[in-house]
Design a protein around this nucleic acid. Structure first.
Length: 454
RNA sequence: GGUGGGUUGGCGGAGAGGUUACGCACCGGAUUGCAAAUCCGUGAAGACCGGUUCGAUUCCGGUACCCACCUCCA
């Protein structure tokens, strides 16, 4: 059995992964709030934890892993989007979920085992809130229900903060009905225009964090193996999830291992909606950057380090993938991935190390091993291969070139061949001449329009 | 102010207390009519100051700078 090691944010250490039940490994990842296209920053955890999913399936068996990633489809950002566009909330969330699936599929991410929607779990949320009140961890006030953080001594442990420090640095206005400034909302009242559900505290809607606690408990149980998400969710989202779940279930931990990916940056700054420096996955796909290339770039950097998105990385990734796809075309994959690749991934998802190991395989000419190993990273798969496969038909041009070259060899005048070569190069066509003939391949800067004029 | 993370060769980016990371670029060679592609090869690093050690880029402490979280965000 391959030993998997993961950096556990909960203990701040790299630890050996020991499943609670090797026959049923349970992973929860926080999914998107569905009101807009996913930006590239949203894609990083999806791709990174997709590799985790693939690794766990490889080591423990495909049927032994349950991966849950939610859709938060009730949120004030969605309400705001509905108000400003005049559209129906359900229409917005349905559309956004379809977009999300399209875009993440394009990046080669496997669909999780389950993708629950928050609005399908309102009864479970209400039950959990009532339970928290009954156990003395939450209180109702003015149509709200709040979690009382002072009742949970370990509040702040995941993110390494103390309540007093947080209050000292707090910049938000505190609602008057809170017993403590850090108390957070489990349930809040809705007006007539807002989505709402009947509850013991009147018509209302859930706060931000309770959906993940309710859905993970319902689908994975009160204690599960891995909880994953972006580092920006560590506080307050994950801290609050832990408080709710542990107090409701009386458990020692919510998840045994907590994994957090670092942020994506653009020009040294976090890509975020509030900074306005974000672009969506769809933007990149529309620019003609293949999903497989985006995926490769995301995997070039270890998930626990900030990564910068640059055009140079796109170029490198594309060139490497073209080379590897050429090498593995029509090759039967090896029976199992190379041990070096598995070992790299098992060492805290070292995708950069795994890619280095793939380079080793390519250099050694082990196409079968490369194909089988790349699959573990979700690369060189059939699903993602269209961008190299549907190349234009260049046979007429190569025939013309072959003829010109033969004539040139006889006449010793190569000017006509060189002129054509230059045009092809300008159009981004890669030219491979051998003794026997001419092979033309669309290269990284391929431009079909320029080809027309040759 | 509090908390967490980072600083590696021209660029990207890993691991390991002592032995070549790897990729891109560069340079040299093979190949080519010349190139491209391909193959082979060379060179190049560890922010700064201390400490531990026979030996540290790798461990410990400090300094500087950068980033993130503390407010919706992955």
């Amino acid at each position: 059995m391959v030993e998997i090691r993961l950096t556990n944010t909960r203990t701040r250490q790299k630890e050996r992964f020991e499943p609670i039940d090797p026959g049923n490994i349970r992973v929860y990842a926080c999914g998107p709030t569905v009101y807009d296209r996913a930006h590239l920053g949203n894609a990083r955890p999806v791709v990174v934890f997709d590799v985790l999913f693939r690794l766990l399936r490889h080591v423990y068996g495909a049927d032994a892993v349950t991966y849950v990633r939610n859709f938060t489809d009730v949120d004030d950002k969605i309400n705001a989007r509905a108000a400003e566009t005049g559209r129906d909330i359900r229409e917005i969330t349905e559309e956004t979920i379809a977009w999300y699936h399209d875009d993440m599929d394009a990046l080669g991410a496997l669909r999780p085992t389950q993708e629950p929607r928050a609005t399908d779990y309102i009864p479970q949320m209400l039950a959990m809130i009532e339970d928290l009140i009954a156990k003395g961890f939450a209180y109702a006030a003015e149509g709200h229900v709040l979690f009382e953080v002072r009742r949970f001594p370990e509040y702040g442990r995941l993110s390494g903060r103390s309540l007093d420090d947080m209050i000292a640095g707090a910049r938000v206005e505190v609602a008057p009905f809170k017993r403590d400034p850090m108390d957070f909302v489990l349930w809040k009242p809705s007006d007539a225009d807002q989505p709402g559900w009947d509850s013991p505290w009147g018509r209302g809607r859930p706060g931000w964090h309770i959906e993940c606690s309710a859905m993970s408990a319902e689908l994975l149980g009160p204690v599960f193996d891995i909880h994953a998400g972006g580092i920006d969710l560590q506080f307050p989202h994950h801290e609050n999830e832990i408080a709710q779940s542990r107090c409701a279930h009386g458990s020692e931990v919510m998840a045994k291992y907590w994994l957090h990916n670092e942020m994506l940056q653009v020009e040294g700054k976090k890509m975020s909606k509030s900074l306005g420096n974000f672009f969506t996955v769809r933007d990149l796909l529309d620019q003609g950057i293949p999903g497989e290339v985006i995926r490769f770039v995301l995997l070039m950097t270890h998930y626990r380090k900030p990564m910068d998105w640059t055009a140079e990385k796109v170029r490198e990734a594309e060139a490497t993938l073209r080379k590897w796809r050429g090498l593995t075309a029509d090759i039967e994959p090896a029976a199992s991935p190379a041990p070096a690749v598995v070992a790299a991934l098992a060492d805290d998802l070292n995708t950069a190390g795994a890619i280095a190991a793939l380079h080793d395989l390519a250099r050694a000419g082990d196409a079968a091993g490369l194909q089988a190993s790349a699959d573990l990273l979700g690369l060189l798969t059939d699903d993602l291969g269209d961008w190299t496969a549907d190349g234009p038909d260049l046979t007429a041009l190569s025939a013309r070139m072959t003829k010109l070259r033969a004539e040139a060899k006889a006449s010793k005048d190569f000017s006509a061949v060189d002129a054509m070569k230059q045009k092809l190069t300008d159009a981004g066509v890669e030219i491979r001449m051998s003794a026997t003939g001419v092979e033309l391949l669309p290269g990284s800067g391929f431009d079909a329009a320029k080809l027309e004029r040759i």
